[in-house]
């Protein structure tokens, strides 16, 4: 029997299935995403990047920055806080519910607690626990707010305000999620390091800004030239040890564009899909290991 056509047909069907499932269906789902009304600012999110930042994205790609830097923040789970705002009419019942949720408080402590609202009545709870309490509070007619707290190592490092979602990359011509973190994640570098001068110095001589940095220096994105009668306003303010005497170091347009791109990286708009953390702390060079404490945007139940 000639099995050739049969095998060919099978291969063809398998290939079409793979293509249909992994390319065609996702294309329908995320291939036509549009900017959405932002939850907080009221504008559209995302907005297109300014032209110079778009050029900078090209420089980022050209230099292969994505080989060492990711642009993707992950979330490993969520916790919930429930904050009681008003007791409503059935005060005794509400007190009972709060006591059930926090048995270690004791009857008196709960009554004391409920005198001054709003007060958190549940914190760091999992989904089932929260749902049970929230349902009961709803039935009792109390008013409360629920906070969703995103958990994850990336968030703890302050690498982003929330996990990244498909819409964050809507206007990227090339989506450079990255494969490795030889250097830190850059999803929110524009928030962590909002200073353009820092970035220019860091690109020119990484170790002057970050001790022990393995990042190659991008001296070729800068021009070293004799200081003329009027020094360039763009010239880098380098530490004396590496500043070339009689010369100034001026960023080429590529370096400026790259920095504009880096500063544009924020991904901090509130979106429906992902719970937020407050704005990441600005990185203090002395303490690069900031852990942002858990807190989150308020979402109504």
């Amino acid at each position: 029997m000639n099995q050739g056509p049969l095998v060919f047909l099978g291969v063809f069907v398998t290939l079409v299935t793979s293509w249909f499932g992994m390319i065609f269906v996702p294309q329908i789902q995320v291939g036509e995403l549009k900017p959405v009304p932002a939850e907080v600012s009221g504008g559209l999110y995302p907005a297109a990047k300014p032209g110079v930042a778009q050029q900078g994205a090209e420089v980022y790609r050209q230099q292969g920055c994505y080989y060492c830097h990711s642009q993707q923040v992950r979330q490993s789970g969520v916790q919930f806080d429930v904050i009681l705002m008003e007791m409503g009419e059935k005060t005794n019942e509400v007190a009972k519910i709060v006591l059930q949720a926090n048995p270690r408080f004791g009857d008196k402590a709960v009554k004391q607690l409920l005198k001054q609202l709003p007060k958190p009545v549940l914190s760091g709870a999992n989904f089932e626990e929260t749902k049970k309490t929230v349902d009961k509070l709803k039935d009792a007619g109390a008013k409360f707010e629920m906070q969703v707290i995103a958990l994850g190592a990336d968030l703890n490092r302050g690498w982003g305000a929330r996990r990244t979602v498909a819409n964050d990359y809507l206007f990227e011509r090339t989506v450079m999620l990255g494969e490795q973190r030889i250097g830190p994640d850059l999803t929110a570098i524009g928030l962590r390091r909002p200073d353009a001068a820092w970035h220019l110095n860091h690109l020119y001589a990484p170790t002057t800004e970050v001790e022990g940095s393995k990042m190659p220096s991008y001296t070729y994105l800068f021009e070293k030239r004799p200081i003329g009668r009027t020094p360039s306003p763009d010239a880098l303010k380098l530490p004396a040890a590496i500043a070339p005497a009689g010369y100034e170091v001026v960023p080429k347009p590529e370096a400026k564009a790259l920095v504009a791109y880096l500063l544009s990286l924020k991904s901090n708009a509130a979106v429906f899909e992902a719970p937020m953390k407050p704005e990441p702390k600005k990185e203090d060079p002395a303490a690069a290991t900031n852990v942002v404490n858990a807190a989150s945007a308020v979402t109504k139940p």
Partner: peptide, 23 residues
Amino acid sequence: FWFLLIFGGMGGMHHGMPVPAWL
């Protein structure tokens, strides 16, 4: 042969990618 083709053809997305969670 068949399982390599069928299972191998649908994969490659890693956990936490900013894509629909089913991928």
